[in-house]
Amino acid sequence: MNIAIVGAGAIGGYLGVKLALSGNNVTFIARGENLKAIQANGMTLTMEDGTSLHAPQVKACTIDEATPHDYVFLTMKSHQVSPVAEQIGRLCHDKTAVVTLQNGVPWWYFYNLVGEYQDRQLSSIDPGGAQWQHIGPQRVIGAVVYPAAELVAPGVVKLIEGNRFTLGEPSGEKSERVTALAQAMIAAGFKTPVSTDIRSELWVKLWGNLTFNPVSALTHATLEDICNFDLTRNLAARMMAEAQTVGEKLGVQFKISIDKRIAGAQAVGAHKTSMLQDIEHGKALELEALLGSVIELGRICNIPTPTLDSVYALTRLLEQSVLKKGKGLSLD
C-alpha cells in the first residue's frame, strides 16, 4: 500500500513508522529540519515503554515534489490544510483516498449527509471552499484520533499513550477502501474500528475539545483544575449542553451524559490541553475547527449558542494578542 503522510509531526510520525515497518511504502511530506532529518536518518518512534522503533527506508520530500499515492493521510492541524489544499490534490490519482485526522468538525461534514443541509460547505473551516474544490469530499475517509504523541526532535516522535484510530466513510458504508485501510492499520498494531456513523464518533471527542481547550487557554488551567473548580465546571456543562443541542439537531447521538464526559476529562488529571500549549508557544489555535465551526453549525440550524459565542470571542482575542506580540504566554 502506497501511503503519503502530509505533516510528519507527532501523529504523522507515529502512524508512518508503524505502517512502514509492517510493509507499506510510506512517504513523509515534510519541510525544514524535520525533512532533512528524515531524509538522512529515517523516522524514529519511542514507545510508551521506552523501546525504540526505527523506520530507515521511508521516503521524505516536500509537498511540491510528491507524486500520487493510494492513501493520503492529513495529519497537520485543521487551519494548516486550506493553504496547501491545491497541492494535496496533486498527491491524488482517480482512486486515492484522503484520510482526514484533524480535530473538530471536518470541512466535509455535510457531504452525503441526508437531509436539508446535504453538501453544504462550512466557511469557518474551509474558507473559500479550497479543500472541497481541490481535495474533493468524494475522496475522504473520516478518522478520529485518540493517541497522544510528541515530536521531540526532528525525525523523532515519542508516543505518550494510545493506539486507537476510528475510521469511517461519510456515507456510513463499509467500503472496500476503508476496510482495506483498517486492515493495514490493524496489521501495523493499531486498534482501527470502522464506524458506520463517523460524525457521532467525531462529536464524542469534539464535545470535550470545544469546551476544555478554549477554557484552558483562557485560564491556563489543567483539565483537573477546570473540573474541580465549580464555576468553570458549570461553564463547561453549559457549553456542552449548547453543543449537544446543535449536534442532536443534526442527527448526532450522544451515548454518554454531560456529567460522565466531564468526569472523563477530570480523570485525565493535570493535563495541559493542546490549545493551552499553543498559547504558551505563541502559535495559532485550532479555534475554528473546535469551536467556531460548532457556532456556525448552530447558525445553520437556528440554534442559539450564547455561551459558546462568548468563550469564542474571548479566545479569539487572546490568540490575536499573542500572535501580535509574537511570543507565547505562560504562567510557568
Rank of each mutant, 00 (worst) to 15 (best):
G136Y: 05
R139N: 04
V145S: 07
A148M: 09
A153V: 06
A153D: 14
V156K: 01
I160G: 15
E161F: 11
G162P: 01
G162K: 13
F165D: 03
E169P: 08
P170T: 00
E176M: 14
R177L: 11
V178W: 00
A180D: 08
A180R: 07
L181P: 00
Q183F: 08
I186G: 05
A188Q: 08
K191T: 14
T192R: 01
T192E: 07
T192H: 02
P193K: 11
V194D: 05
S195H: 06
S195T: 05
S195E: 05
S195V: 05
T196W: 01
R199Q: 06
S200E: 07
S200I: 02
V204F: 14
V204K: 09
V204N: 07
W207H: 06
N209R: 10
L210V: 05
F212S: 04
F212M: 13
N213Y: 02
P214G: 03
V215P: 13
S216C: 13
L218Q: 07
H220T: 04
T222S: 13
D225M: 12
D225S: 12
I226F: 00
C227N: 04
N228W: 02
N228E: 14
N228K: 15
F229M: 09
D230E: 13
L231N: 14
R233Y: 07
L235R: 10
A237W: 07
M239G: 02
Q244Y: 03
E248S: 07
G251F: 01
G251E: 06
Q253D: 04
Q253A: 06
F254T: 00
S257A: 14
I258W: 02
I258P: 04
I258Y: 03
K260Q: 15
R261T: 09
I262G: 05
A263G: 14
A265R: 07
Q266H: 10
G269T: 12
A270Y: 08
A270D: 14
H271I: 09
